[in-house]
Amino acid sequence: MSSIVDSTPLVHWYSKEKLDDVANEFLHEYCPAALEKPIAVPIMDIAKKKMGLRVFTKYRLSEDFSILGQMCFTSGLVTIYDKDEDEYRDIKVRRGTMLIDPDTYLKRNTGCFNNTVAHECFHWYKHRNYHLYGKAVGKDNTKAFRCPVAEKDVNYHDDWDDEDWMEWQANNAAPRILMPKSTFINAANEIIKQGHEIYGSSLQAWWIIAKLAELYDVSKQSAGIRMDELGISID
């Protein structure tokens, strides 16, 4: 694995199964109520009030909406896209600034927005020391972490560098923070039970997914993937 710093142990490898535990650690620290019962995790409040991050949703991060969010680990200049002027320009930010492209909500949905905020929170929670160490040893590219829409193909992970692994971790940790394993399984089973009482054998998976997405304030796609990952069946 290549690295922006030499032989640093600051990027830990987690399996997807381990990321459930890491997500629980995050929630235990910032929102323990989410581990006790199914709730929509107040991720924006966590970011601002519990983690002390500055969150801005007014800056476009790319011309083609290829970047959803950005976590700024050190103070300095970062590049944003000025739609009115149709040009990229630099703005000054402070350490602990989170930038979320406004189109994350306008072109998608609240669930996508919440997932992006959770994604950036995870970067700050687990990866800020890596970037601070990089800055300490003079690596300029540690200032900010830009998070693209498109995910890299995990089949080619042998060629990934530290940034690729950190992005993979944040991609997979975010839905686990918003939909913790234990409460999600319980909520899904309860909704499936209700669905069978209403629809009987004609119960459809989309109805379960829509109910879970509404409960956790996530996208239907994310709720469906979480069901599949946890092996939850409507039968």
Score class of each variant (00 low, 15 high):
residue 111 G to M: 10
residue 85 E to P: 11
residue 159 D to C: 10
residue 87 E to N: 14
residue 134 G to N: 12
residue 155 N to P: 05
residue 151 E to P: 00
residue 158 D to M: 15
residue 93 V to A: 04
residue 111 G to R: 11
residue 156 Y to P: 04
residue 104 T to A: 15
residue 99 L to C: 03
residue 120 E to G: 07
residue 77 L to D: 13
residue 93 V to T: 09
residue 117 V to I: 13
residue 132 L to V: 11
residue 71 M to N: 01
residue 88 Y to I: 08
residue 73 F to L: 00
residue 96 G to E: 10
residue 121 C to V: 07
residue 108 R to K: 14
residue 148 P to W: 01
residue 142 T to P: 02
residue 100 I to L: 13
residue 160 W to Y: 13
residue 125 Y to T: 12
residue 158 D to V: 13
residue 127 H to A: 06
residue 90 D to Q: 13
residue 115 N to R: 15
residue 81 Y to D: 12
residue 98 M to Y: 01
residue 118 A to P: 09
residue 122 F to L: 12
residue 153 D to G: 03
residue 158 D to N: 13
residue 101 D to L: 07
residue 82 D to E: 13
residue 99 L to A: 02
residue 80 I to A: 04
residue 112 C to Y: 10
residue 152 K to Q: 11
residue 131 H to D: 05
residue 147 C to L: 01
residue 122 F to H: 09
residue 112 C to N: 11
residue 62 S to P: 07
residue 83 K to G: 08
residue 149 V to T: 09
residue 118 A to C: 08
residue 79 T to H: 06
residue 75 S to P: 10
residue 133 Y to G: 06
residue 134 G to V: 07
residue 143 K to T: 01
residue 132 L to G: 07
residue 65 F to C: 00
residue 97 T to P: 06
residue 96 G to R: 13
residue 89 R to E: 12
residue 154 V to Q: 14
residue 131 H to E: 02
residue 114 N to Q: 11
residue 127 H to L: 11
residue 146 R to P: 02
